[in-house]
Design a protein around this nucleic acid. Structure first.
Lengths: 216, 216
DNA sequence: ATGGCTATGTGATTTAAATCACCGTTTTCG
DNA sequence: CGAAAACGGTGATTTAAATCACATAGCCAT
């Protein structure tokens, strides 16, 4: 959490940015930002003029319905970037999504201006951007699959395992209400399904806490 | 439907490809393919080595659930391209989606090899690719919104208006079963909702046919 | 026209999840 | 400390849509 921007940091978290010139450009133009857990990094409708690359920590991306309810889309973690933001910057549009720091998070912000220029100058930058798009596209498809084709119990299991994997821990720190919000369903449904999983020996429940037993 | 590949055709349908050199490259490397209405252009799991640009007609893109059921994602029409295919080509992966000709369709196929090269050579190509990603990303978000936040009646109305707009006609040629398939719901639900819309004076129903009155 | 598809209409029943209405328990904060 | 808020559990009821079970209507081919 005390990272300063340097060649070492850059090489460590983004080893794919291979061109030395790109590296100096990033160092020259990038700026480090820190967000404590829970901080709102970007919200629906806000203008963004900076692309965040995640150095340390992770970010939860979600979408808002008309009535203000929320839907979890995906997590971003170290070495990744926010493609939706890239789109926004390029087209100078307003954000379609909300980004909240899932843990204490350090990001490297790159100014709007350079993002497009670099596409035609540095192969590894271009590859990074295209790969990000591809990843996010696939996340979205998988989210659609879940909502359209799966029952709630499957969605819940998937959510639990994604979250456990992100934090590299079998113990998930969350309330039933938060989970229900992320999946855009009722709290009671989640409570009942969790109780069910517990009685089947798949998880242990505690206050603000869910422990996955076995491999989910 | 008798288009041959030429500068005129290219300039007409893809006026944004402004660099003369890019234009000759496209003419040199592109190949025209024709698909009759209903033809399967690409299927889940198939390998694609070509990016289709749509010259004439339109294509319906959908996603398949594990049980074989289908979900409509979006239409592509003239001047557009299939971003999902671009991703596949770049990463040499297998198709995640199905593409079916919605009408008689002419596409310009570009070989895998050139797609990436051109990104750093021609600004207008790079812009086209990034814009396509952005558009598709937004379509996906909107699909997610629909499934997650809307009731079936809203989804149906949205589907009907998208389809009417695509074909530039208030008359939609489809059976209730097809619509139900696209929305991944039961045929009976669609029949009942349509009957309802009819009784409220919003549409007229005929065999294999739905006519939108007013503006959807 | 007759018999056989395919499309549509509609009632009855079941189902997954939402909603409503409460509990008691744990945590937080004035 | 004690009150209020947050968290979690659980029954009862309602709801949107699926499913089941037919009926009827239009279309096509011999």
């Amino acid at each position: 959490m005390t990272e300063e921007l340097s060649y070492e940091v850059l090489n460590h978290y983004f080893p794919d940015f291979s061109e030395p010139e790109l590296q100096s450009q990033i160092l020259a133009n990038g700026k480090i930002y820190r967000f404590p857990e829970g901080a709102l990094i970007m919200d629906f409708g806000s203008h963004v003029r900076m692309l965040p690359l995640i150095i340390e920590g992770s970010i939860k991306i979600s979408r808002e319905g008309e009535d203000g309810s929320e839907l979890f889309l995906y997590y971003l973690s170290r070495g990744e970037s926010c493609t939706m933001t890239f789109s926004c910057c390029m087209a100078d549009k307003v954000s379609e999504i909300r980004a909240v720091a899932e843990e204490d998070t350090v990001i490297l912000g790159l100014p709007q201006r350079v993002l497009d220029e670099w596409m035609m100058m540095y192969k590894s930058w271009k590859n990074f951007v295209l790969q990000s798009y591809d990843q996010r596209m696939n996340e979205m498809i998988s989210t659609i699959d879940q909502i359209a084709f799966s029952q709630l119990d499957q969605r819940l299991l998937d959510y639990l395992s994604k979250t456990a994997e992100l934090h590299q821990s079998k113990e998930i720190k969350a309330t039933h209400l938060q989970i229900a919000g992320d999946l855009n369903v009722s709290r009671e449904s989640i409570s009942r399904l969790l109780k069910n999983l517990e009685s089947r020996g798949q998880i242990n429940l505690g206050r603000n806490k869910i422990v996955l037993l076995k491999d989910l």
